[in-house]
Design a binder for these strands. Structure first.
Lengths: 343, 343
DNA sequence: CAATTTTTCTTACGCGCGTAAATTTTTTAA
DNA sequence: TTAAAAAATTTACGCGCGTAAGAAAAATTG
């Protein structure tokens, strides 16, 4: 590497012997110039470290290569994993992911949407908070930039969406539980932050009725994203009051189940499907920690890979051809039963 | 809101009746203009939605208001929490946090450092991967931008650092365990990705010797960040081979302990300090999930709040006054014993 | 080899804003 | 009321790059 510091494209044009407009072309797409000049440029690049100024580039570009990614709660390993997947896919497309978390707070979500506008993203991948989301703001964003919703749909927007088939997933779980033991009662939050919970509850009810069984639902208080805490404290109450002492409990999501398992353990109730187990417990999501609960949690997994891959793919469809694949399509991927020791 | 769309500061100057240079001043610091003009501007802002183009701003500014934040592994709720704290503090200072995760991969860490350069951050808060970090690259970044390291120091850089007092924290845990039961054996990874682990091991050894006890260490294989998996599988092996059947086990970190607890549970070993418990288990970090293990995990907490607050504070010290508070200082905050049921 | 196509070069302008200098206006102090 | 200080205005240039248009050079074709 040489000692001369190149501070702009003009200077790099001099040392590389390539004109600035051609360099500009190269940096926007290395394949758009002749092989021989590409080679020259890259040779010069080896000698004189230079990178175009991102702000100057994006100022004039019709479109930046930024892709906004908003998830509702990054401290949840579930979303952290999905975000990580999506980030990598976006990078592989030669774009620049900007990851933002709403931290479970609708105001933060709106803040994030505003931040995104500053960044003038080429497109955005948005997993909305759901029930609490500011639908008007989200709708505006969707019409402002090419956007794909994932994980949680806002149906009134009638916008491109890819996610998990909550109905089918709950269904196979109920089937499994009914087939292998006591039919499940259902444990959920009265006001779930995420509307997927509604789909899951309905699916539970339908499945139970299809089996000729009476649905039974515990709707507990709690509004935040502290699911483990809610599962733990409400679970303890229900066990104390003898509302739950045996049988099978199906939880809206793994995190509630994780909290409940802690409560059951603490109160001396053995969970599992073996002899001497009072309770069976099942979750939903295949949370990264569900393998390490005591006992390991039986759950339904999302098709993480298909969902993230398809979200990104559909976004780039939008970017390249706005008329392309039906932009209001909802695309769902089936869940997969993960049998472990808890049920 | 009016129907006229303002597309740049020039146009906004016309409709607001304020000159462009004054507007520029206002947007860089609303308090830098007279109250009366500030009021006029904000009145106009109500009528004509306008936001300065971020790219054009940052292109010419001596310094952007971007603050880069790099954490080693965002899918770990531990870092997710810290990152969330820091983000909020940065926003409160009127800056713009850019959060990047290295996903446990040193190459990704270098990628992140390079990405940061593009963004021309005013400053950066970096929690390095540690042992695997590319020290040369990190060092360059430190000299290029005002930087504060946190969580994990790279001592050879001799750079501003704020973190957890691993030595003291391990010490109080060993004290507690020795005082209340069997002295602990130590469980760690042979090649821990994070060098804090070395401090903890040394502290364990010292503490034990101070008590006149023989240190005993299990160094298990495994190099990745799948700590739970490692704790689980290695734990199962050690229990099977009867290397661990009773007594007290102190783990380098909570995530290893979480995995081990799952293994112990599966193999029918009861953990806790009550009667009928074969094993006591203790962790380190006060991981967000450590409250919900079976049994709840006794651990040592970082002073999350002080660490994130101080990191941000010291970065802004650097920003405002490069000569200020000794930039090579290492600042440690003591850990706090969290007694729960596992030990 | 000439004719055609493709690529590069030269020239020039614009993006939206920061910022400096000189001037004018407004506010504050005396 | 007047002088001094503070703030706003006008004017003008620059940041680093995108991009358009016409000329020139290089590669491809027959």
């Amino acid at each position: 590497m040489s000692d001369t510091t190149i501070k702009n494209m003009e200077e790099f044009a001099v040392v590389s012997g390539i004109s600035r407009p051609t360099l500009s072309k190269y940096f926007n797409d290395p394949e758009s110039v002749r092989q021989s000049t590409k080679a020259k440029i890259e040779a010069a690049l080896e000698l004189h470290a230079y990178r175009p100024n991102m702000y100057a580039m994006n100022q004039n570009r019709r479109s930046t290569r930024n892709i906004g990614i908003i998830v509702p709660f990054l401290a949840d390993p579930f979303f952290a994993e999905i975000a990580r997947n999506i980030e990598n896919l976006v990078i592989n497309e030669g774009y620049r992911p900007i990851l933002l978390s709403s931290h479970g707070d609708p105001r933060q979500e709106v803040e994030n949407l505003i931040s995104l506008r500053d960044i003038k993203p080429a497109g955005v991948l948005l997993a909305p908070l759901g029930r609490a989301s500011n639908i008007a703001e989200v709708g505006e964003l969707c019409s402002e930039f090419p956007t794909v919703l994932f994980d949680c749909n806002i149906e009134s927007l009638n916008h491109a969406f890819v996610g998990h088939n909550n109905t089918q997933a709950t269904d196979i779980m109920v089937d499994y539980l009914v087939r292998t033991g006591e039919p499940p009662v259902y444990f959920e939050m009265k006001k779930p932050p995420n509307p997927n919970a509604n789909k899951r509850r309905l699916s539970y009810i339908n499945s139970m009725e299809r089996h000729g069984l009476e649905p039974s639902i515990f709707s507990v208080d709690g509004e935040s994203w502290n699911f483990e805490e809610i599962g733990y404290s409400r679970g303890k109450e229900l066990i104390s009051s003898k509302d739950i002492t045996n049988g099978t409990v199906l939880f809206t999501n793994d995190r509630l189940a994780i909290g409940f398992l802690a409560a059951a353990y603490e109160m001396g109730f053995r969970v599992g499907r073996g002899n001497g187990c009072a309770l069976r417990v099942a979750g939903h999501d295949n949370h990264p920690y569900s393998r390490f609960t005591c006992p390991a949690l039986t759950t339904v997994s999302h098709d993480y890979d298909a969902i993230s891959r398809t979200s990104v793919m559909r976004l780039f469809d939008l970017l390249e051809n706005r008329e392309g694949s039906n932009p209001t399509d909802e695309q769902l991927f089936p869940g997969k039963l993960i049998m472990r020791d808890s049920a």
